[in-house]
Simulated assay, not measured.
Amino acid sequence: MTRLVASPVQTGLTLLNPLLYFVVLGTGLSGMLGSASGTGDYLTYVYPGILLMAVQMPALNAGMSIVRDRETGLLRAVLVAPVRRATVLVGKCLGSTATATAQGGLLLSFAGVAGLPYDPLLLLALLGELALVAFTLTAFVTLAAVCITRIETFQSALGVAMLPLFFLSGAMFSVAGLPWWLAALTHLNPLTYAVDALRQTVAWGTPGGALPPGPDWGGWAPPLGVELMVMCALGLAALALAARRFSRAE
């Protein structure tokens, strides 16, 4: 958090990409797509995906730092500390979760642009969900970082994986009406439940807002609590696997 506060330029550059998507792409598609959100405002519909994008980059940086520290030898120096290896990994994951949540929380100041009221309860609910999403993303990226040793391979793997996962989450368009094979991929995508959880909260805080279709489990739409538990379980499982793999002597 100290490094985050001391690097406002880096924080601003990290938030520039989701802001461009939100302001430029969201405004440009708003008139064309019309009522995709059920409220007639595409900016409201795309806002949860923009929040997800805001915490995605800091989570990726967490894994990048692990791989970079391993290549430079800094990680080996840290591991001589009189603590368990898993403790170092969990601390790194939780620290990155905190910074990702803080950066994502900055975009909550644009809630009014998305047509949301500045309701403290609504903003706190979104911030708490962002923290859970950031933890889950960081845990998965950390798992990839302890399995991939070369930074070039790590960058290529995440570059190939993260963009399809983002677009298959329903962040930019509805998951309803997709071909069966593509719909199956969206249901296996953990980001789908992150976006839908944020979208359910946004719909709750939007006056007269209707909730667009989300994941469908055999005709049953999982409620917000179930989606939060799914993300929490996936994050804990990924972190446990990463800690187990990290604890092995190299």
Rank of each mutant, 00 (worst) to 15 (best):
Ser35Gly: 14
Pro18Phe: 02
Asn17Val: 08
Gly63Tyr: 05
Pro48Leu: 03
Leu13Lys: 05
Gly38Lys: 01
Pro58Val: 02
Ser65Pro: 02
Val23Gln: 06
Leu51Glu: 08
Met57Tyr: 15
Tyr21Ile: 11
Gln10Phe: 12
Ser65Ala: 12
Ser7Gly: 06
Tyr47Asp: 13
Leu29Gln: 10
Gly26Arg: 03
Tyr21Phe: 15
Leu52Glu: 08
Leu33Pro: 14
Leu51Ala: 08
Phe22Gln: 07
Gly34Met: 02
Thr44Met: 12
Val46Cys: 12
Leu33Ile: 10
Thr14Arg: 01
Ala54Lys: 01
Tyr42Pro: 09
Val24Cys: 07
Ser7Arg: 15
Pro48Tyr: 03
Leu19Ala: 09
Leu60Val: 11
Met57Arg: 14
Met64Thr: 14
Leu60Thr: 12
Gly28Glu: 00
Gly31Ile: 07
Leu25Val: 05
Ala77Met: 14
Val23Lys: 11
Val78Met: 07
Pro58Met: 00
Leu51Cys: 14
Ile66His: 11
Leu29Thr: 13
Ile50Ser: 15
Gly34Asp: 04
Leu75Gly: 00
Thr14Pro: 08
Val9Glu: 06
Leu29Arg: 11
Pro8Glu: 01
Gly38Asp: 06
Val46Pro: 14
Tyr47Arg: 11
Tyr42Val: 08
Leu75Ser: 05
Tyr45Leu: 10
Glu71Cys: 08
Arg68Gly: 05
Ala6Lys: 15
Thr39Leu: 08
Ala36Trp: 13
Thr11Asn: 11
Val9Asn: 06
Ala54Thr: 02
Leu79Met: 06
Thr44Glu: 15
Glu71Arg: 07
Met64Phe: 14
Gly49Phe: 12
Leu75Ile: 02
Tyr21Trp: 15
Met32Gly: 07
Val9Lys: 07
Val5Trp: 00
Gly26Val: 01
Asn61Cys: 12
Ala54Tyr: 00
Leu25Trp: 02
Pro58Cys: 03
